[in-house]
Structures are given as C-alpha cells and as structure tokens.
Computed example of a mutant assay.
Amino acid sequence: MTAEPPEETSKIYKLRLFVTGSTPRSTRAIENMRRICEENLKGQYDLEVVDVYQNPDATRELQIVATPTLVKILPEPLRRIIGDLSDQERVLAGLDLQPLA
C-alpha cells in the first residue's frame, strides 16, 4: 500500500496526547506517537503532550476521561483515539491516513 502524504503546508496535523504523569504506559504512548508522527507525517505535525495531573483545565475542556488519549484537533474534523496507541494502523486510520510503504 502506498500512503497519501499530507498536502504540502495546507495540512498540519495538530495533535494532543493526554497522559497521566510519568508512568511506563505514558512513556510508551509518547514514544509510539512520536515514532508514528515522524514516520508518517514527515514534519507536518504539532504533537503536544498534556499531563492531565498538571493540566486539569485542558482535560475538562476536551472531556478527557481515559488516558492515554490522542485528540486530532486539526485538520478537522476533531477525532479521538483512546487506549492502546501502539497499533500504528489503528492510529493512522483514526487520523485518516494510510501507512507509508
């Protein structure tokens, strides 16, 4: 399968990854998302990691009740991926992307 890369400059993926503190699960989620973004979005992303313990207002704003949770804010529509972020195909499908060959 050949991936469709994001359109040049017009499609920046603004992503927020919500985690709970510095735990092995949070660390894995952050590492997985950075790897997936680097391999598939090639610099066309802004990944913000939000620790729900440090930023409770952000979690209320987006109604985050489980972590890790990935929220795609841009491009619209807003999408959420909750739970295991190690499955690259699942994450990319949630972002409306195909994996790069």
Rank of each mutant, 00 (worst) to 15 (best):
P5R: 05
P99Y: 03
R90F: 09
A101D: 14
E4D: 10
V50Y: 01
G43C: 04
D96V: 07
P68N: 08
S86I: 08
L15H: 06
R16K: 15
L92T: 11
N40I: 05
E48V: 09
I36D: 00
E7W: 10
E39L: 02
V52Y: 00
G94L: 01
S10L: 12
K11A: 13
K72N: 13
V50M: 03
N55D: 15
P56I: 09
R35K: 15
Q98N: 10
G83C: 09
I81K: 00
D87S: 14
D57A: 13
I81C: 04
Y13V: 11
P77N: 05
V50N: 03
P99F: 02
E39I: 00
N55R: 09
S86Y: 01
G43Y: 02
V52L: 10
N32D: 13
G94A: 06
E48F: 02
A66S: 14
V91I: 11
L15V: 07
R79I: 01
Q63C: 00
A3T: 08
I73D: 11
V91C: 11
N32V: 02
R28A: 15
L95S: 04
K11N: 12
Q98V: 12
T9A: 12
E39G: 00
T2C: 04
E4P: 04
T23H: 02
G94Q: 02
D84E: 12
V50I: 15
I12K: 03
A3D: 10
R28N: 13
E7K: 14
T20N: 11
L62M: 09
A29Q: 07
I30C: 03
R79K: 09
R90Y: 10
T59W: 00
V71P: 04
V19I: 14
L95W: 05
S22M: 09
L70Y: 03
Q88P: 03
R25Q: 13
P77L: 06
I36A: 01
P75Y: 07
E76H: 12
R25M: 08
Y45K: 00
A101M: 13
P68I: 03
V65L: 02
L100W: 12
K11D: 12
P6L: 10
R60P: 00
I12S: 05
R60T: 10
G83Q: 06
R35N: 04
